[in-house]
Simulated assay, not measured.
Amino acid sequence: MSAVTLPEGDWIRGISIRQPYAACILAGAKTVENRPARWRTGWVLLHTSKTIDRTALRTPLVDRTIRDRQLVTGSVVGIARITDCHQDPAGAPLCSEWAFQDAWHLVLADVQELPLPVPARGQVVPWKPTPDLLARVFQQLPDFRP
C-alpha cells in the first residue's frame, strides 16, 4: 500500500455529526448537513459525536436508511467534500428532505467511508485535524487524491 501525498496547509477540517445522521451520510442517503452558521467548501473528515440522537432513530426517514448499520461514536468514520453551503429562501421548498428551515445547508459529495473507524476527539465547530490523525485516516484511503 503506497502512502498518500497530502497537500500542505489548511485544506481539510473535521466535522462532528451525531449518530444516526453520520450513518445516513455514509449510506449515501443524506447529502445535506444542517448547521447554525456558514461553513466553507472543501474536504472534511466525518467524525461521529459521542452521543446518539435516540429520537431520530424512531423517524421513518432515518430508520429505513440506517437499517443494519453500526452506529459508531467518537471516531472519524469517513471523508466528504462540502460543495456548497446555503440557506433556502423563506417560503421556498427545502433543497432536501434532510434540510431544516433556517439552517445553513452543507451539501456533501464524494463521501468515502473508512474500512475501520479511527477514534478521535471532535468539536462542535469546524476543527483542524492533527497530522497523526490525518495519517491514520488516509492510510485507509490509498487512492484518495484531493
Rank of each mutant, 00 (worst) to 15 (best):
V107T: 13
R58A: 12
R67H: 14
L134Y: 05
W104S: 02
L61G: 06
P117E: 02
K30W: 07
V72M: 07
L134P: 01
Q139G: 12
L133I: 07
L114A: 04
T59H: 10
N34F: 11
A29D: 13
D84T: 07
A92Q: 11
I15G: 01
Q19D: 02
G42C: 02
E33Q: 14
D143N: 14
N34T: 11
L134N: 04
R35F: 13
K50E: 10
Q70P: 10
W98P: 00
A22D: 00
Q112S: 05
D143P: 04
P89V: 06
G74T: 13
W98E: 00
G14N: 08
L141T: 02
I17D: 00
L116P: 00
S49D: 12
P129W: 02
C95V: 14
A3N: 13
A29V: 11
P93M: 01
L108T: 05
A29R: 14
V77Y: 09
I52S: 07
T51W: 06
C85M: 11
D84P: 04
V118T: 04
S75Q: 14
F100G: 05
G28M: 12
R145N: 15
D84N: 15
G14W: 00
R81F: 12
R136C: 02
L6K: 01
D88H: 03
L6N: 03
L57P: 13
C24G: 10
A92C: 08
P115D: 14
A27C: 11
D132L: 01
R69F: 09
L6F: 05
T48G: 04
